[in-house]
Deep mutational scan, measured.
Amino acid sequence: MQIFVKTATGKTITLEVEPSDTIENVKAKIQDKEGIPPDQQRLAFAGKQLEDGRTLSDYNIQKESTLHLALR
């Protein structure tokens, strides 16, 4: 499925993911596309910060959802 990640600079990244993917996997995909190390990424959805060990389906993130990326 496709999801979107909006960066602090307003850029939107499109990612191909599975509901079973962990947040860690998603951060690795962002690193592949943007070169941002996962340990510098903070992802949020619906106002909640997402934890590495959880999956997209844990957070009820569905196709075409938009996550927000902040850098630490």
Results as ranks from 00 to 15, higher is better:
T9Y: 07
K27Y: 06
E24Y: 08
P37W: 09
E51T: 04
S57Y: 12
G53I: 10
Y59E: 04
G53T: 08
I30N: 01
A8P: 09
L50P: 01
D21Y: 06
T22Y: 08
S57C: 03
D21R: 02
K6H: 08
D58Q: 15
Q49H: 11
T12D: 07
A44M: 15
P38V: 13
R54C: 03
K48Q: 15
Q40Y: 07
I61A: 02
G47S: 08
P37V: 12
D58N: 05
L69E: 01
F4V: 06
S57L: 15
E51A: 05
V17D: 00
D21W: 13
G10P: 04
I36T: 15
A44H: 15
G47H: 06
Q49R: 07
I36L: 06
K33H: 10
I30C: 02
F45Q: 04
R42A: 12
I13W: 08
T22H: 14
D58I: 05
R54A: 11
E64A: 10
S20M: 14
S20V: 13
L56A: 02
E64T: 06
E16H: 15
N25Y: 11
D39G: 13
K27E: 01
T55A: 06
P38S: 10
G10T: 04
A8E: 08
L67A: 01
G10L: 12
S20D: 11
F45L: 09
T22C: 03
T12H: 08
Q40H: 14
A70E: 15
Q31Y: 09
G35M: 09
T14D: 11
A28I: 10
H68R: 06
G10E: 11
Q40R: 09
E18A: 06
D32M: 09
K48D: 08
G53V: 14
T55M: 14
S20W: 11
L71V: 13
L43N: 00
G35N: 06
Q49D: 15
T14Q: 13
H68K: 15
I36C: 03
Q31T: 10
T9W: 05
E18C: 04
K6V: 13
Q40T: 15
G35W: 04
R72P: 14
Q31K: 04
L67S: 01
Q41N: 03
D21M: 07
D52P: 04
D32S: 12
S20P: 03
